[in-house]
Design a protein around this nucleic acid. Structure first.
Lengths: 226, 226
DNA sequence: ACCTGAACACCGTTCAAGT
DNA sequence: ACCTGAACACCGTTCAAGT
């Protein structure tokens, strides 16, 4: 069964209910916490089963009693990080609430850049993901949006947050020396005059500004609940 | 030097100019073409150096003469796929042109779902990526958008296309049995009443409709060139 | 029930040797 | 200049054996 699929999640929830952890034993939380530490400090490539086990002080084969594969561990890690998202209502209407939730989601993702690519590994159906989903749908339906419209808006904004985080972290992130390298690169490519001319605004590494621009346009374009 | 970084691309362009391939020899194009075949048919996990070499009929260590690492191969593969994007003007104004380009970009990504996650590996600075960038910036500036505005619009739309493709392909893609599994999953989770109530619209696997909704909202919200 | 040890198949990458 | 062969270090995963 593929880790992160709906079928997998269903089995996972059932197993979690059945489970009674014994005192002093290794549990899933200890594993995901160790995994997050490694991934935050050293990146995704450093996250091996052996490395996680070493961090905890156990043989790496022991992990397979709690997690069926590395992929399962990664899926669990994603929902663990999603637990840091704490959406709150603002008292200033649905649009302000949605914007605040989007920025809060973005904040958490940027705090753990290495796990962002993992969001595409499976479906976001863990307890923390569903908590966020419930919150978003709640504020939209309470504002008067029709159910199918609320779903569309929720999914579009969520995907926008994830998409911009994906492109803004990792390989696409721009430092100072990256920017000078880019200028030099474009200088040697006369085939693309506009790319060269607009090199400066293209390379300003202000992801927050771009995020603000896109989110505002998105919400402007959606109108109001009938 | 990190594959996909601006510095890497700079060296890569320079090396490509220097290169004179000898007749009958192995060249990069042959490698990326074999890689794409494998990845389309069997997914990203099947794309090993040994497998690519086998497909071509050569020892796997030979690949390292043309590509410094597996990561380099993946970055080259991305730009290779981007070559399939053929944006065209419509004669119906900048907005129609931009929408058409966005759909064309989406079409190519969905045709090669396994490579979509690779778009986040490095910067999109290959020749085909820059060709698309030049096209997008061209149609926007010709329409009268101020340069910095054109850049924002271009980046936002491009990131939107990639973001929705990322979440719509791979693990998040929904088949029929996935949807029934999701219904059963929600039925057992009374903690999330709205998620359960809206399960049906949430699980309709119509990515095109969601894409259309988001793209329209985005462009609606951007207004017109001054 | 949980952890350990040994083992398996398979990776990416390096490098001296051939032509 | 390019390809080959052998080798290295390191993976994820399985499973019988211990407690």
């Amino acid at each position: 069964m593929k880790a992160g699929s709906a079928q997998w999640w269903r089995a996972r929830y059932a197993a979690r209910e059945r489970q009674r952890p014994r005192a002093g034993g290794l549990e899933l939380g200890r594993i995901t916490r160790a995994a997050l530490e490694i991934v935050d400090a050293e990146g995704l490539a450093a996250l091996t089963m052996r490395r996680v086990a070493e961090e905890i002080g156990v043989r790496h084969t022991s992990l397979y009693r709690h997690v069926a594969s590395r992929d399962e561990l990664l899926v669990e890690l994603v929902d663990h990080v999603l637990g840091e998202v704490v959406p709150q209502t603002t008292g200033r209407g649905w649009r302000a609430d949605l914007e605040q939730a989007a920025w809060e989601f973005r904040r958490v993702l940027l705090a753990h850049p290495a796990i962002v690519p993992l969001l595409t590994l499976g479906q976001l159906l863990g307890p923390h993901a569903l908590r966020g989903r419930e919150f978003g749908l709640g504020l939209l339906t309470r504002a008067g949006w029709a159910p199918s419209r609320a779903v569309h808006i929720y999914l579009t904004v969520a995907h926008f947050v994830i998409g911009t985080a994906l492109l803004g972290t990792g390989g696409a992130a721009r430092g100072a020396e990256e920017r000078t390298a880019m200028t030099e690169l474009f200088a040697g490519l006369p085939q693309y005059p506009l790319v060269r001319e607009l090199a400066e605004p293209l390379n300003i590494p202000d992801g927050d500004q771009e995020f603000d621009f896109g989110l505002t346009a998105l919400l402007n374009g959606m109108g109001d609940p009938r």
